[in-house]
Design a protein around this nucleic acid. Structure first.
Lengths: 215, 215
DNA sequence: GTCTATAGTCGGATAGAC
DNA sequence: GTCTATCCGACTATAGAC
């Protein structure tokens, strides 16, 4: 990708995430990227083209980040499957997810994605198809495994959403989380505290699912 | 409140939630409310005045909804406190929260609030002070109680956030939740499934906290 | 209090120079 | 490919009629 394109995309994700598609201005985006406004038309065909390209860029980047963890899960599913390894790989995935959600780098991504959920456009399909859908599907499959199929199809997917929600909240409701904890911002030490809390919740839930399955 | 004011607020919350402060247009809001644009200036002093009034209206309305549950909690805290009643009242709060988050009525509120988190303005303080802060504080206090103070101050607040996140995700990531479950929308039957999943997660976590405290 | 008319600003798109 | 200049529509705010 050309450096100009790349810079435009980065700035665009930030602006669109904060102000929304309509609220953001191509003038401001171009100015921040240090390029004339007409280059947006030239490279992306206009404002909406830039918006879609931003969504695809987010999807691709997040995909790269989570892929290693997801591939490990795929291997586990393919090979000898047992509840213990499923639990371990879920811990890996969710630990990685905390890092992604807490880290500043994904702040702009998260704002963009959350905004799409409020009023989904064509961009949502590209985001969902990219990585979110796969990840949720994998997590749900692992939950069924741990529960020895005591959990139904729908239940396991709903459960997967609740588990992801535990972490998502620190990105989506960041302002509230900071106010509630008294933290000034979220760095590595805060991430560690969150990771520990999430892991403990997960173990509690997994234990319950396993216990029920053996009854 | 005057009917015109009330209609303007309802429409404004919807528009601001979808398009953001900058994206929404006072023309469109006034048109949807069936009143001339200049009435916004007259009643609220302009666009930003309308925005702040919308935030306060949301805070007040949500406060009314959750107040009964929170007052019960306050009574429990004031009177004889034990882990069993704390668990019961947390179940009440979270059950109510599922209804609020799943119901269509709060969709517009949620969009507005989430947008504020992405880039907090003065409106966020009014929202947080109104009800969100109190609720989180209460939940955290109950968690400490259940854990017999095994959970520290910060840990209990972080834990409270994770618990709320389980439910919030169905509002904030509604589009993803629908795609992942295959549901067309969320009505009472879906709310029941979610409520059951959340309650089961809560019991698993509470059990673990209690078990640890008695060791 | 309610509405119309208008002023002034800023947005996205585009033509055309280089 | 990159940038400047310009067009036209949409926006907020406000003055003033009723």
């Amino acid at each position: 990708m050309k450096p100009t394109d790349s810079r435009l995309l980065d700035v665009a994700i930030d602006h669109f995430g904060r102000k929304g598609l309509e609220g953001a201005s191509t003038r401001a985006i171009a100015a921040d990227a240090g390029t004339p406004m007409s280059s947006i038309t030239y490279h992306f065909g206009g404002k909406s083209g830039l918006y879609l390209a931003a969504a695809e860029h987010i999807s691709a980047t997040l995909g790269e980040r989570l892929r290693p963890a997801l591939e490990r899960v795929a291997e586990i599913c393919a090979g000898g499957i047992n509840a213990g390894t499923a639990r371990a790989s879920l811990h890996t995935i969710f630990g990685r997810m905390v890092e992604i959600m807490v880290g500043d780098e994904t702040a702009a991504f998260a704002r963009f994605i959350v905004r799409e959920q409020a009023e989904p456009t064509e961009a949502f399909d590209r985001l969902y198809a990219g990585i979110m859908g796969q990840m949720l599907q994998r997590v749900a499959a692992m939950l069924r495994l741990i529960s020895a199929d005591t959990l139904g199809e729908t239940d396991s997917r709903v459960r997967a959403m609740t588990l992801v929600g535990q972490i998502l909240v620190f990105r989506v409701a960041r302002a509230t989380a900071l106010a509630a904890t008294g933290w000034n911002d979220m760095g590595e030490s805060e991430a560690a505290i969150i990771k520990h809390a999430v892991a403990d919740n997960l173990d509690a839930i997994f234990d319950r699912l396993e216990a029920r399955s053996s009854k």
